[in-house]
């Protein structure tokens, strides 16, 4: 069993990063940059935010490998499903 004893100050620091990234992710869509780049940056920022929550608030950084497997297996299934459906979208629409 993992027991993480991070301090309240550390959790507030992570929250400050999350708020900063929220502002950054929102500002990106208004910047005069190519849409594809903006789209990539917006979802990269979202991925970093999710990563911070998962790693530090859900304490995945200190978890057993079994928990990683349980969490990542459905993500793998989703990716396979999306890739499987891509040709249908690309060639039929």
């Amino acid at each position: 069993m993992s027991t993480v004893n991070d301090t309240g100050y550390f959790y507030c620091e992570i929250w400050a990063w999350l708020v900063g990234l929220l502002v950054a992710g929102t500002v990106i869509v208004f910047l005069p940059i190519p849409k594809l780049l903006a789209l990539t940056l917006v979802f990269a920022v979202a991925a970093v935010k999710a990563g911070l929550v998962i790693r530090h608030y859900m304490h995945l950084k200190a978890e057993h490998v079994l928990i990683y497997l349980i969490a990542l297996l459905p993500v793998l299934f989703i990716i396979i499903m999306a890739i499987s459906l891509l040709p249908d979208i690309a060639f039929r629409h």
């Binding site: 992710g25 929102t26 869509v29 903006a38 917006v42 979802f43 920022v45 935010k49 999710a50 929550v53």
Partner: peptide, 16 residues
């Protein structure tokens, strides 16, 4: 975490 992804998908996509 789910909302973190729903937010850009549904709200920020207008400009993109």
């Amino acid at each position: 975490v789910v909302w973190i992804f729903l937010f850009p998908l549904l709200y920020l996509s207008l400009k993109l």
